[in-house]
Amino acid sequence: MFILFGMPIAQIMLFGFAITNEINNVKIAILDKSKDKETEKIINKISASKYFHIEQQISSENQIKAIFEKGKIKAVLLFENHFIKNLQAQKQAKVQIITDASDPNTANTITNYTNAILQNYIQENNKIKTENYQIDTQTQLYYNPELKGVFTFVPGVMTVILMLVSAMMTSISITKEKELGTMEVLLVSPLNPLQVILGKVFPYIFLSIINATVIVILGVFVFGMPVQGSVFLLAFESFLFIITALSLGILISTVAQSQQTAMMLSLMGLMLPIIILSGFIFPISSMPLPLQIISNIIPAKWFIIIIKAIMLKGAGIAIIWKETLILIGMTLFFILLSIKNYKIRLE
């Protein structure tokens, strides 16, 4: 009943708020080589808009790669040397918009919005001073210069499939035993709970590993997805995520009494949040704050960050250790909760 009536409410709220391709408070950095009156005005204008939040000022191009690898800052605005001088002397000055295109949609939107702000600024300026200045913007896309959509959906699909196979199938196969009554016989046997669960989970570990490998291979060879970072790290992180998903599946099976409940729980409780809140389709940074906070408890979010960082940015463990730790923490939490919830007896 709760699912029947609660779902439409949850869905409409989620879709209404989260599902927008607009950007909001995107974190950007400024590299202002000129530091003059005009650039200051432009920066103020940008920072005044609700679309951008200026997170930091950097001083050299060398820092750009490092801040993109961290993944927090999505774009860098670079003002050339002698900006005001060029503007006055040549009536034209250059601004470079460098975006992190591992999420092509956001990158595109950022570029468009920045352009619009710059144009708006020039127009206002020209009207007042009756001059004919121009700002020449150059766009540079990091990681995904061709803005290929496949770069987002390969990690996304991989996450969804791993969740589906690991969490949903595990929970269904365990609850099936409860439904058929075989769980009762297994309980009245010398097998301990760990053996029963491991036995149920083992095949799905293999299945998931094969699935993950196939997706990565297809992504690389069919869609030209790069693997910039270490393949071993990628394999390790994928394995970690498989374990996370499996432990979620076990947790669901300790709560659900029937296959149907397990399926509903997996679909509603796992699939939807993954698709909507993990940043797979809709950028997290432009969601309202409550949803951004909720997105933190979704393991898929962290996994998507991790594999994008490894595949597109060539990040090593030094950069993604935080996300990895979060996943490990979540997995441990789910396993502990499952052990606590697992019943050595029937209800």
Partner: peptide, 20 residues
């Protein structure tokens, strides 16, 4: 002593509970 009991008994539930 449920663990010890489980080793020593045979149980056939009312519902058919083998792997179909």
């Amino acid at each position: 002593d449920y663990k010890e009991i489980r080793k020593n008994i045979g149980y056939m539930p009312g519902k058919f509970s083998l792997y179909q």
